[in-house]
Amino acid sequence: MLGVDDVRDQVGSIGFGCRGCGACCRRVAEDSNLVIVSPAEVRAIMAATGMAWDEVAEPYPDFIDAGNGGEYTLAWCIRRTADACIFLRDGRCSIYAHRPWICRTYPFMLVDDDLLVSECPGLGTPLSPGAAHDVALGLCRRQVAEAAEEAGVRAVYRKARVPPGGRVVIDSEGVKVLHD
């Protein structure tokens, strides 16, 4: 795992400044704005908005055949309209203070020891060392949170049972049956 200083140096050399364009929140290609969220992130958004789970989140769209007529997926995503995240309002994020990790750290992502960078108009904008450190710290915290969520999903998955003909989401909290 990369340390904060290593990530800071990489992020600083790339540069980034959010332009507030909202392009990352809009669907420009199939699943381009698919924001995967943990159950904890869904609950934080629910607490901040008063919305219900199914108003905030939808199952990750790729389902796996369980072999008994049922199927499952292993993640949740923020709900979207036909063209944008449901929380994009008047070109701005309406849950900015409670936005998920993926949104907080965009356009960057850590995968093992690699810094991945998504396309974004704000790339190349000089960052102060302090701002680069803040981005790096967020990325490292996100990596830890995602690893913990993945471990939780693995633990639940080992014991999970998909009901025959049912559709479920297996997450770190358990098996959640989807109702049409």
Score class of each variant (00 low, 15 high):
residue 3 G to R: 15
residue 8 R to W: 08
residue 9 D to R: 15
residue 10 Q to K: 15
residue 11 V to I: 14
residue 14 I to A: 13
residue 15 G to V: 09
residue 16 F to T: 08
residue 18 C to N: 14
residue 20 G to C: 10
residue 21 C to V: 08
residue 24 C to K: 05
residue 25 C to V: 13
residue 26 R to Y: 05
residue 28 V to A: 12
residue 28 V to K: 11
residue 29 A to E: 15
residue 31 D to T: 03
residue 33 N to H: 10
residue 33 N to A: 15
residue 33 N to Y: 01
residue 34 L to C: 09
residue 36 I to G: 07
residue 37 V to Y: 06
residue 38 S to G: 08
residue 40 A to G: 09
residue 40 A to I: 02
residue 45 I to F: 01
residue 45 I to Y: 02
residue 48 A to W: 05
residue 48 A to P: 02
residue 49 T to M: 09
residue 50 G to T: 03
residue 53 W to R: 11
residue 53 W to A: 08
residue 53 W to S: 01
residue 53 W to F: 10
residue 56 V to D: 04
residue 58 E to F: 00
residue 60 Y to K: 03
residue 60 Y to Q: 01
residue 66 A to E: 07
residue 67 G to P: 06
residue 69 G to I: 08
residue 71 E to N: 10
residue 72 Y to K: 08
residue 75 A to T: 03
residue 78 I to G: 05
residue 79 R to K: 15
residue 80 R to K: 12
residue 81 T to W: 07
residue 81 T to V: 07
residue 83 D to F: 09
residue 83 D to Y: 08
residue 84 A to C: 12
residue 85 C to I: 10
residue 88 L to N: 10
residue 89 R to C: 12
residue 89 R to P: 05
residue 94 S to D: 14
residue 94 S to T: 13
residue 101 W to G: 04
residue 102 I to R: 11
residue 103 C to D: 10
residue 105 T to Y: 08
residue 108 F to S: 11
residue 109 M to Y: 13
residue 113 D to N: 14
residue 116 L to D: 14
residue 116 L to C: 13
residue 117 V to C: 05
residue 119 E to G: 14
residue 120 C to A: 14
residue 123 L to Q: 06
residue 126 P to K: 10
residue 127 L to A: 06
residue 128 S to P: 01
residue 128 S to E: 10
residue 131 A to N: 08
residue 134 D to Y: 07
residue 134 D to M: 00
residue 138 G to W: 04
residue 141 R to V: 11
residue 142 R to Y: 14
residue 148 A to N: 05
residue 156 V to A: 01
residue 157 Y to L: 14
residue 157 Y to W: 09
residue 159 K to W: 00
residue 160 A to S: 00
residue 163 P to R: 07
residue 164 P to Y: 04
residue 168 V to R: 01
residue 170 I to C: 04
residue 170 I to S: 04
residue 171 D to I: 03
residue 171 D to L: 00
residue 172 S to H: 00
residue 172 S to T: 00
residue 176 K to M: 05
residue 179 H to W: 00
